[in-house]
Amino acid sequence: MRIARFRHEGKIKTGEIKGDGVRVFAGSPPIEAIVADGHDAVHERERAEIVPMESVRLLAPLHPASLRDFVAFEEHVAGVRRSIDGTGGVPDAWFDAPTFYFTNPHRIFGPGDEVPFPAASVNRDFELEVAAVAGPDETIFGYTILNDWSARDLQKREMQVNLGPAKGKDFASSLGPWIVTADELEPFKDAGGFLDLWCSVTVNGAEVGRDLLSNMGWTFETMLAYAARDSLVRPGDVLGSGTVGNGGCLAELWGRNGRQEPPPLRDGDVVTLTVQGIGSLTNTVISGPATDALPAVRRRDPATARNERQ
Score class of each variant (00 low, 15 high):
H63C: 03
P264E: 05
E186T: 05
A4T: 12
R157S: 14
V80N: 04
E44K: 14
G255P: 10
S287N: 15
E252M: 12
I278N: 02
V56E: 01
E75F: 03
V285T: 08
E261M: 03
R256P: 01
E75H: 11
R82A: 15
P52T: 02
N246A: 08
F194I: 05
P30W: 02
A4Y: 02
G89C: 07
E74A: 11
L185A: 07
T202C: 04
V42F: 00
V77Y: 06
M216W: 05
G268F: 09
A151S: 13
R47K: 04
T304P: 06
P235H: 09
G209S: 04
G176Q: 01
S280P: 00
V244G: 02
R5S: 00
G245S: 03
E44P: 04
G86F: 14
P264N: 07
D37I: 00
F126R: 01
D148F: 05
A191K: 08
D125K: 02
E221L: 06
I84N: 08
F100D: 08
I3C: 06
E186I: 01
V130Q: 08
P295S: 01
L239S: 00
G236P: 05
K11N: 08
K13W: 10
L59H: 03
E207M: 15
R7A: 05
S231W: 07
L67A: 02
A305D: 13
A225Q: 09
G164N: 09
I17L: 15
T181E: 02
R157N: 07
N246F: 06
E46K: 12
P295T: 03
A228D: 14
Q260T: 11
R157C: 09
T282A: 10
V42A: 05
G205M: 06
V22R: 04
Q160C: 07
S241G: 09
L281V: 03
P177G: 01
G168P: 00
H63N: 06
E32F: 03
T291R: 15
K189I: 11
M223P: 06
G242C: 08
L62R: 00
E127P: 03
A4K: 04
G88W: 09
S121Y: 12
G10H: 02
A225M: 03
V285Q: 02
L232F: 13
W254I: 07
A182H: 01
R298L: 13
R157P: 03
P116L: 15
I278E: 01
G268A: 12
P262G: 00
S200T: 14
M216C: 11
G27M: 05
G248Q: 05
D190N: 15
I12N: 04
K167R: 15
T274G: 00
F73H: 09
P235A: 12
L163M: 14
Q155P: 05
D153F: 14
K13F: 04
D20K: 11
F188M: 08
V133H: 01
E158D: 12
G258I: 14
V130C: 05
N147R: 10
D269P: 01
A41Q: 14
S173T: 12
G86S: 11
R300N: 03
S173D: 08
F73S: 14
A36Y: 06
